[in-house]
Design a protein around this nucleic acid. Sequence first.
DNA 1: AACAGCTATGTGGTCTGACCATTCAGAGCT
DNA 2: AGCTCTGAATGGTCAGACCACATAGCTGTT
Lengths: 264, 264
Amino acid sequence: MQDHSDTVGSPSARTPDLSWAPIPKSRAHELVIEAIEEQVMSGRLSVGDTLPPERELASMLQVSRAGVREAIRMLESHGALESRVGAGSSSGTIITAMPSIALTRLLRLHIGLSNFPVGDVVELRIALERTSAGLASKNADDAARERMRETIERMSAAEVDREAFNEADTDFHVAIAEAAGNRLVADLTTAIRNSLRTQILHAFHHREQWTQLRDTLRDQHREIFSAICDGDAERAAALTEEHIRYAVAELPEMKLPRDDGSGA
Amino acid sequence: MQDHSDTVGSPSARTPDLSWAPIPKSRAHELVIEAIEEQVMSGRLSVGDTLPPERELASMLQVSRAGVREAIRMLESHGALESRVGAGSSSGTIITAMPSIALTRLLRLHIGLSNFPVGDVVELRIALERTSAGLASKNADDAARERMRETIERMSAAEVDREAFNEADTDFHVAIAEAAGNRLVADLTTAIRNSLRTQILHAFHHREQWTQLRDTLRDQHREIFSAICDGDAERAAALTEEHIRYAVAELPEMKLPRDDGSGA
DNA sequence: AACAGCTATGTGGTCTGACCATTCAGAGCT
DNA sequence: AGCTCTGAATGGTCAGACCACATAGCTGTT
């Protein structure tokens, strides 16, 4: 933790620039977070390790247990921790690595707050999936290709309904992202997909006759799949962008953010 | 996401693969989060509004104040809330919209946990900034162009040191992202840049003679700037990718994540 | 009346201490 | 050996108190 006494500043400069205000972090839980983050950054704590028990951490850092718990909650909300009750080796608060869940919640929240228009999200999705498709064209192995093929098969099933189709659709894009070999991009792709899940499904249901749309989307998947198998990165990327733009254009209801508040 | 061991896996079948485990939400703070999120998603709460006081919320939801506070911390860590002490109108817990800070912390944390190799981050950065450059070529207004020009000027100053150069460098890329008119992409770009800030600076300092590198990078910025002013999206994107790849290649030290744990 | 200063009040921030619920390791019994 | 049961460790929750802080509004002076 840095001392917040660094008001120093350059004497000669006349307020040189902004620089984030060096807010005095007086809040206890932030100290705890800093302490934990320091351990993580220095490598003394890594995935799988367990934190000291809350009570112990509290006494070590000289804060109350509530403060420790608040810090743990914040880290947990970032997908960096997980708490398990009980005794023994598998209990306690352990360092984890589940950023995509955290990213999903974060994106969903801010989309809900209308900070991120759906159009912006779509643009990001295109950027990500172009990259994924390109990388997948080079890196995909047989198993990955099989996963993609399987989703297309599911999309082709005669009895497929909207939910199942959407699932298969999602799985196809996630499979590409994972095949690309870039965890970060894959996680972000998953997060975006999950953030928009409700709205996509909503749009699908507002589509009276969807069999034609379904077939078109499935065929586009086939083409993308083909390009990836051919190792044609450029074509895969272009087709992916085209596919996404087409889908968005065909599902205008997706842009309606406000729905009912009934969570599933 | 966690290990993708949870995905498919069973080739034979159905496995609706619902993803979301039916977690028994026994934890109190999760209920509180759901309650707040519901208000947000339904639009009853939006940016600027204030939440009921903690004590009141606690009694309304029939949980302890500690539970409420933990929920608030989690939302706060996502940049969706901010708490202020005191009385009167500007106090209390208010809904905010600061996703970029949250994204920064999240990325930094997971990069620290080695979940996201620097190479993956770079790939994402390229995807984002290609998009930004492309969009900026179409959307940039005079003010935005002026901001970019100013950063190039700062990079050209005779007395510029590594810190100042890095600041200007960052500002240039952020200016492009903002000029693109896509908040989400801009925030992510900022977050990535901030996440890597320490390591970039570290790499810069390990570079004995850096004047040549500095000039090259600055010239690349000039070219990108020129392409954007010309409205040449394709060229701007290509130059940006080239620029980033060049910088990464020239700063190999950036890939060393582990440092010493001694605070500066 | 206008202003300055003080106080009341409401808010988050923190701490303490207790108790509950869950889980596992190991003692003890069959 | 195998099973059962108990103890202990751990997170989950709660209640109540007090502190720090910032505004709103009252009070007193000019």
